[in-house]
Design a protein around this nucleic acid. Structure first.
Lengths: 220, 220
DNA sequence: GTAACAATCCGTGAAAACACGGTATTTCGT
DNA sequence: ACGAAATACCGTGTTTTCACGGATTGTTAC
């Protein structure tokens, strides 16, 4: 490595066994030290605030209770823009990748990434602020050219999406969102167009696969 | 412990970091030895077959590529009925629990279970063949009294369920299953009744939350 | 100030999904 | 060999979902 500094990292993941595995793996690298372990976004932010010194890089999962990785990333980059964030998630798809890079992530790896790739992502993010792999750079350039499947989703669309993942009719969603059922049709139609799907079942799949709605009930 | 024998266990989970965390955790107990590590059901069965001696207990995840935990459990109990199986999964719900106990599982723990509970489940499964916790024994007695939400799902219903988790109409599912669209209606209606839901969106949620359909696309 | 764009809202008709109420056929215990 | 129960199958009508085309408001760019 260019520098002999020891990179201080924080790890946030709700599974204690994954945390243990990651800490164990990272500790095999001499120039990396795991200084913070957190089990969700809220926990992570608290621990960063009270730590004697800020971490250089955060390793973030997406699906976590209380505060998920999307929101934690946003907060971190707002508060400490120089902290680099490496996403590490099972939700490895176009939407999640574009969304997190837009919010300032430095890298995005799938959860099955090899330790050596994780190490490369952390050190390069620390040194240059960015680490791209084949899928992530492809998605990014498509997004820049507006050729991406997915453009931004609005807050209303995300709210609708969450409510659509339940055993209720659009009429009831309209009541909960306090808008007309016709407006719900519009949210749905615009989501269909953006995601290139044609059924509510597909919306549910999208919501779960991106982590917008938790896999397990009552998670978020 | 009653016995001073060292319990030989096998671990199957598709995440290398979870495997590492579990091995690390289990190795802190003197009377447990992790002798087999596998990344999916197929891998596990191969390794059990070629091992110098059979494991006493298997620790099984549900969602894995190639062969999932449901099928791996079935194969193990068919081939080596005396091997005890402890399920350890994020899919901790009534359906998954009842289904795996019917197929001969000895215990079912959620993925966030503490190491001490995991240890208790393994040792007690080894000694008595069963380890129940509050949720699992409640679900089991409800199932015995036929008061359970979910009775068994037929093979056709599960096949339909998998196909329903896609952006296609029932008509196309009927074509793929080579039955009339009316028959598809029946599969759907009987699933609605068994699961007490009223929409296809809910079927998708059920399929993902039980692990019948993988969270990530193209997984199984 | 207005063109361009995005977000919100809406009417209508066609298509799909869903509810209800059935009939064969098979399986299984006795 | 029999009835009970589970499975596979189907017709019809209602409700919901979806597609298409359009109107209104608010924001930004110049």
């Amino acid at each position: 490595m260019k520098t002999d500094k020891i990179i201080s990292i924080a790890i946030a993941d709700d599974s204690q066994y994954i945390r243990k595995g990651l800490v164990f793996t990272m500790n095999t690298y001499k120039d990396i030290a795991v200084d913070i372990e957190a089990e969700d976004g809220v926990d992570l932010l608290e621990k960063i605030e009270t730590a004697p010194k800020l971490p250089d890089v955060c390793l973030l999962d997406i699906s976590m209770p209380r505060m998920d990785g999307y929101d934690a990333l946003k907060k971190i980059k707002e508060t400490w823009p120089h902290i680099k964030v490496v996403m590490l998630s099972i939700h490895y798809n176009e939407f999640a990748i574009i969304r997190t890079f837009k919010d300032g992530a430095s890298a995005f790896l799938p959860k099955e990434a090899a330790p050596s790739e994780l190490y490369a992502a952390i050190t390069q993010s620390y040194e240059t602020g960015l680490y791209h792999t084949e899928p992530t750079s492809t998605y990014m350039s498509l997004a820049l050219q507006n050729k991406s499947i997915i453009t931004d989703l609005t807050d209303k669309e995300i709210e609708f999406l969450r409510l659509a993942c339940d055993d209720i009719h659009y009429k009831e969603i309209a009541a909960k969102m306090k808008v007309s059922p016709r407006t719900i049709d519009s949210y749905r139609d615009s989501l269909f167009a953006k995601l290139k799907v044609h059924s509510r079942a597909s919306l549910v799949l999208f919501a779960i696969r991106t982590g917008i709605v938790p896999t397990i009930a009552g998670g978020k």
